[in-house]
Amino acid sequence: MIDISGLTKHFGGGPVLNNIDLQIADGERVVVIGPSGTGKSTLLRCLNFLDVPQAGRITIGDVTVDAAKAGKADVLALRRRTAMVFQNYALFANKTAKQNIMEALVTVQKRSKAEAGERALAVLAETGLADKADSYPAALSGGQQQRVGIGRAMALEAELMLFDEPTSALDPEWVGEVLDLMRAVAERKQTMLIVTHEMQFAREIADRVIFMDGGKIVENGAPSEIFGSPKDARLQKFLKRVEG
C-alpha cells in the first residue's frame, strides 16, 4: 500500500507540487498524464527524494516518512522500497549490463556476488538481452539501454516501480520494445507509477489514470472514465491536443 498525503514541493518560485494526496493499492498500475511542467516527474522524484519535498507524508509498505523532518535513514528506507526507471536510462556508464543489474543487489541488498550474478542473468533473459550481459551501455542502442534500465529496476523487487517518461528520449523505432517490456512487468501485478505521454499504452495497461495540471491532481479515475468521459475542461483540452 502506498499512501501519499499533503505532498508539497516548491523550487524557489511557486509550488510544483501542491498538496498532493494519492493512494495506490498493492499491484495497482497507475499512469500519470498531463502537460509538461505540471509536476508529474517531480511527483515521482519526491517519492524517492531525488527531489526533496518540503511537506507531506509518504508511506510505502512499512515505511512512513514525514517530508518536513526526513533524515538520511528515512530517505534510504524510501529509496530501498522503490525502483526508478529514468527518461535518459541513467545506466552506470562504468559497468556492463549485467553489472548494472547486480550493483544494487550486491551493494545495497548485500546478496552474494554469485546469487546476484545469477539473478542479473535471469533478468537480462526476461528483457531479451541475455547476449548483451557483458556489453557496456555505450555499446547498446537506446532501446536496449532502457530495457537494461527496466531490468535493473525489476531486479530490486521493490514495492513500487517508478517510471519517469521511460520512452520520451527514445528514437521512435525503439519505443515498441520498451513498452512491450513494461507490459510484461505490468502483467506480474507489480505496483507501478508511470509518467508517460504514450496515451494508447496508458489506456491499455493502467488500472487508474491521474491527470495533473499546475502541481495538482485534477482528475483521477479508470482509463475508461479519463479517456472516455473526461470531466475537467483542462483534461478535455489536453486530450484533444495529444490525441489530435
Partner: peptide, 25 residues
C-alpha cells in the same frame, strides 16, 4: 548528473555512490 541520481535511486549510501560509481568515472 544521471549517474548520481541512478546511484541514489537504488538506495546506495553516499560512500558507496562515491566509491563504486562516481570516482571510477
Amino acid at each position: 548528473r544521471s549517474q548520481w541520481e541512478a546511484a541514489q535511486s537504488i538506495g546506495m549510501t553516499q560512500g558507496q555512490m562515491m566509491w563504486r560509481i562516481i570516482l571510477p568515472q
